[in-house]
């Protein structure tokens, strides 16, 4: 039950984009077409799941036992940066079609604050190993859901008459606000 609650909370209630405001750059940058939004979402889900596992191991097997909590920021960011590179090389070697689909999005993910945020929030909440994995995967699905919905809305938005100064990022943020309001309704699911 606890695990299901963590999953639902990560996907809908505490959505990474709409609740924690993490990963806004790709959310605004790669949400013009549904196809590319979906690829970006899948790439993020993939990296998030791996990051959750690796950051948990580092935090609980190295940093906490040796009382190195102050190295958390430096070690997380370095591990994430090298992890993304490694994942990129790995996918290119074993699955060229998958690399074709995710390729250009993977390097972008290194600087995606959602990945770093995931490692930090999981550590802050003190999740167990299984909980961290569920949390990482759920957060990725939540990100995918938000970015794909956003792309769907923006494809429609192209046809509508938006005031000149609001074109681009302005209207996208206002739409995201309305989406956040809708997602706010999911809070009732967990209480």
């Amino acid at each position: 039950m606890e695990l299901i609650a963590i999953f639902i909370s990560a996907v809908l209630v505490q959505n990474f984009v709409l609740y924690y405001f993490l990963g806004i750059c790709p959310f605004l940058g790669v949400s013009k077409k549904i196809d590319s939004a979906l690829s970006m979402g899948l790439a993020v889900t993939f990296v998030m799941s791996i990051t959750a596992v690796v950051s948990w191991l580092i935090n609980n097997l190295i940093l906490i036992p040796y009382d190195l909590g102050y190295l958390q920021i430096v070690s997380f960011i370095l591990v994430i940066a090298s992890l993304v590179q490694l994942v990129e090389m790995f996918i290119r070697k074993i699955s060229p079609p998958l690399y074709q689909a995710l390729g250009i999005y993977l390097p972008l993910i290194t600087t995606n604050c959602a990945i770093m945020g995931l490692a930090l929030i999981a550590a802050l909440n003190g999740y167990s190993f299984v909980e961290t994995v569920i949390f990482g995967f759920g957060s990725g699905i939540g990100f995918t859901l938000a970015i794909v919905l956003m792309a769907g809305i923006r494809e429609q938005l192209d046809l509508s008459d938006v005031p000149e100064p609001l074109k681009g990022a302005g209207i996208a943020l206002i739409v995201a606000g309305i989406m956040a309001l809708a997602f706010n309704g999911f809070i009732g699911m967990l209480t």
């Binding site: 709409l18 005031p163 100064p165 302005g170 995201a176």
Partner: peptide, 25 residues
């Protein structure tokens, strides 16, 4: 209440960006 919710953050920033562009043009 909406202004302290996440929704308020998105909408206010969206409007501010619009105002900034308007002033610039």
């Amino acid at each position: 209440i909406i202004m302290i919710l996440p929704a308020g953050a998105f909408i206010t920033l969206g409007i501010l960006l619009g105002i900034a562009l308007k002033i610039e043009s």
